[in-house]
Design a protein around this nucleic acid. Sequence first.
DNA 1: CGCACAGTTCGCCCCAAACCGAAGCATCCA
DNA 2: TGGATGCTTCGGTTTGGGGCGAACTGTGCG
Lengths: 224, 224
Amino acid sequence: MKDGPDISRVAALIGDPGRANMLAALMSGKALTAGELAAEAGVSAQTASAHLQGLEAGRLISRARQGRHHYFKLASDDVAVVLEALMGLAAKTGQLRTRTGPRDAELRQARVCYNHLAGDMGVALFDAMVARGFLDVGPDRLALTAIGQEKITQLGIVLGGKSRAPLCRECLDWSERRSHLAGRLGRGILDHVYAQGWAERVEGTRAVRFTRHGDVAFRAAFGI
Amino acid sequence: MKDGPDISRVAALIGDPGRANMLAALMSGKALTAGELAAEAGVSAQTASAHLQGLEAGRLISRARQGRHHYFKLASDDVAVVLEALMGLAAKTGQLRTRTGPRDAELRQARVCYNHLAGDMGVALFDAMVARGFLDVGPDRLALTAIGQEKITQLGIVLGGKSRAPLCRECLDWSERRSHLAGRLGRGILDHVYAQGWAERVEGTRAVRFTRHGDVAFRAAFGI
DNA sequence: CGCACAGTTCGCCCCAAACCGAAGCATCCA
DNA sequence: TGGATGCTTCGGTTTGGGGCGAACTGTGCG
């Protein structure tokens, strides 16, 4: 009667909106702290803690303790595969949560993902940097090349050195389904964009609005 | 905050053990009635009805009314993809429910899917019939060609003509993830296999055991 | 027409689980 | 050492949803 693995346990874990939001946030590949995930899920710290325990027990996420922080990430690529499949299905069944409108288009075009650039712009930046040899991509690895380093200094981009975060990191873009640049470098570039006045955040959303001149300057700077 | 498609709704639908069992049963690709699904899920008819409504509303399954029966099947391949991904993940997280054993291998090799042949053998049969031009496959359509018809009569296979069931039908194979042959033709062929003494069902399971001679004869007959 | 059967609707019960306030650990920093 | 911070544990409340008995609808059949 009951063939096969026990699907329902796993699905039930994903089936709670709070936990689903946490997992979606972790789709970036980046490890997040319990507090960040609580905010993402829109619940209190206690509730988040309980949820995270459940997800950990269900082997959907793994935990790394660092000092007083607990960092969580997806336990394996299989989890990402499931989430990806679910997103695809949910999109097709018309359960979109995105509200089509001007704001949505803006978000799709350029938005912040924590502290770096995502959306069309983010992906284009990433692609261009790879194409021009500024970044060296490998399996599970991403490095800034010598000429990439040169370019960065030439542009006057400063990288926060204190943080333990990796310099470069791929981050899966939700709307594009492709990688964009995260890590200290990603953050540095976005800070630079702000500093140059090329773009600014739209109040109340995660959208980033480029000025006409800023758009041109940004593309020119990275050869997009 | 809440980007992307609403994963949790879909996942929650799969997250109930009863509904998960129903969906797993529908993974065969065959349409099942509400009663059959209720039995599969181990719940009463009323409860099953409610669950089926939910799954239908969530666009995970579709319903076809035929007389006083309601036939349900998976709404799309995307649903099957999600279920497959979940099975894979659940298997790796150690939530196995399958018991590995000799019976399992036999099932994978050849088994009945309601009244036709599934497993390795079923898929091989289907592929061979397509390759030899006995079957004509199209999008959402499957037809027996003239030379296919000739072959069938030559082999002395009789097709039940009373049933309203389609002559040919593709059926998604769970273990192989590829199509095999269902419909009246699929049934006729399996009956022929039994009649010729090429194989017989293993008591108490859905496995079909071919004799050494039967295996050779069957393959020869269809050019597998 | 009357009966049988498949499925649905209604009403109600009940419990697992989601939630938070408050308190308790553990770690970091000054 | 004391206070701030990040996270967990405990206790108690609430509710969404799964479950079934009973009654209703619709189809098939003789």
